[in-house]
Design a binder for these strands. Structure first.
Lengths: 336, 336
DNA sequence: ATGAAAGCGCTAACAG
DNA sequence: CTGTTAGCGCTTTCAT
């Protein structure tokens, strides 16, 4: 069997209380401490975290709920969160929720049973009741790449409104007049679209309702939406897809109709994932400061977990437009 | 405070032993069972998993060690593994090891302290000592997208040799004579290259040593390697990059030298990730049956965890070549 | 079929 | 400074 605190105590010739004290850095005579440490070393003793957690100590485990770990943007966040958490001595249990309220509730409940120390909720968390009860029970939570307008909860995200605004400004500067937008049913998309519209309005342009479509999260969903948009007798000359994955669908739709990018159609994405860098053509997109966002989110959470919590924060970071080859100047050309 | 087994017992008017019995489906009179269930319901009782794990029960948590969760292929595996594990009532704690022996050892030790029920090790696991000790301690383990030639351990992977063989056959059939290979320092790459060479030999072709370069895992590493290869006075007309990420680097290198794909250079990847579908041009690559592999891996692990283990297995699945637009017939053309 | 009691490995008063 | 002891919430004999 694996050595327990009793084995260490016996070998060091002290009581288990003393062993516990050296583990928890409580006052112990130097000589005694050394004896204990030595015994631990010899036995290759590793304290059982379950037992100490049962006594109210931390598990040093964070529940990380996200929409879908297979999504490249999400996966990259996961890596950043993991690295930061690891630096601070925490592990991550990761659950993909697919924006499904049931799954959200189930996973939160499950992880609570397993006594995680807190939660990072990435992307829109749909089940507000669950979020509220987490807050009521004072379980540490931080929202990542999301925020809540009325709840007192830590959150870290990019300024989606500005992101959308920048995209529109770019397209306008290229002379595009007829523009469409494809988003998913999430707050981030909606904010991006709001910013997008704002820029248009400031230039006395407007976005007809038929030109904005909110749909599913997959590339295929976007492909369908884009196909419809492009079938219009007067099709858009530019499409803003609210993230890179959706953009891939748009590219495919255009390719399917022999529409050249960017000559006939400009496309802009969001997130600056690997996909956008290697797509055909490389995609103009908006970069989020993932690394910073994730570090901050972890730091906020751990501060709360470890009780050094200051006041709740809503941190909003700035996005950056990255211009590649999927956008170009609009040239009126009659193909008819 | 959250209700404990005592609260349930009191409310139901029975002893905690009885409550425990109904939770564990042990014989209890129907009437009693109902009373208990009712009490649990009313209190919204959730058993504390740490406590039961302390008594030797499972934590229903699996340690999932992988090279890098930000890698799209790995992320997709993670999702499949997660889904299957969840179906069976298990959660995943995910750790990125970067092929680093130290990290591997550290994470295994940490997760053992947290009493995970078993491990899935994805990709090459470099620290053989740690793997061996896991096996010796009879901790359930399965290797995913990897295997071990001499250790008695469950594993599930694709037949990399055949994958490489198919790639070579495809390139040969297109008339390519001067071919190069870029791989990473991992067994899978080496196997793919072995299969690749085999096909060449069978066609009385051979691969000069300078034409195969083993390097880092990043797209940038591959870009550098490819740049060198392409600077050769007699550059290759086709390059096999041992996975899609590396391929992206090759594409960039070619683009940097104004080499057209596939006209001047054919490129083949491996894994059939999102990257390959949306790259410029869409990449010829090799698909792995990720879903099946991951389900099997989880099933093997859980069988072992739950003691219904049959004999150890090494499962090897077949890959499938997917031809897209990054490969074309070789045409001798003098540009000079 | 049910309950009393011991104990999993650890922490935290409380004495000494 | 160190040891004794009582739990944390649950499972598991062993009686009844």
């Amino acid at each position: 069997m694996k050595p327990t605190i009793y084995d260490v105590a016996k070998k060091a010739g002290v009581s288990i209380a003393t062993v516990s004290k050296v583990m928890n850095n409580q006052p112990v005579r130097k000589k005694t401490r050394e004896k204990v440490l030595e015994a631990m070393e010899e036995l290759d003793y590793k304290p059982n975290i379950l037992a100490s957690a049962l006594m109210g100590k931390r598990t040093s485990t964070i529940g990380f709920l996200l929409p879908d770990i297979a999504n490249p943007f999400v996966a990259e966040m996961a890596r950043r969160v993991e690295d930061r958490a690891h630096e601070k001595g925490y592990n991550l249990v990761i659950c993909s929720t697919d924006f499904d309220r049931e799954k959200e509730a189930l996973y939160v409940s499950l992880l609570n049973q397993k006594s995680v120390d807190g939660f990072i909720l990435a992307g829109d968390f749909k089940n507000e009741d669950v979020l509220k009860s987490l807050l009521e029970e004072h379980i540490p939570v931080v929202l990542l790449a999301a925020s809540h307008p009325s709840l007192l909860v830590n959150s870290v995200r990019v300024d989606d409104f500005i992101g959308g605004y920048e995209v529109a400004s770019h397209l306008i500067s290229l002379g595009h007049k007829k523009i469409a937008v494809i988003g998913e049913d999430a707050t981030s998309s909606k904010e991006r679209i709001r910013g997008f519209k704002q820029a248009l309005q400031e230039n006395e342009m407007n976005l007809r309702d038929e030109m904005v479509v909110i749909g599913g999260s997959s590339s295929e969903d976007a492909e369908l939406s884009a196909a419809k948009l492009l079938a219009d007798p007067e099709p858009p000359t530019a499409i803003f897809a609210c993230n890179d994955i959706l953009s891939m669908g748009v590219i495919l739709a255009a390719r399917g109709r022999d529409i050249r990018i960017p000559d006939d159609l400009s496309i802009v994405g969001f997130d600056n994932t690997l996909l956008s860098m290697n797509s055909d053509p490389p995609l103009t997109t908006v970069e989020q400061p993932i690394q910073d966002m994730c570090s901050q989110a972890v730091d906020l959470l751990i501060e709360e977990i470890e009780g050094k919590s200051k006041t709740k924060q809503r941190i909003i970071m700035m996005p950056r437009l990255i211009i590649r080859n999927s956008t170009s100047e609009y040239r009126a050309e009659d193909d008819a």
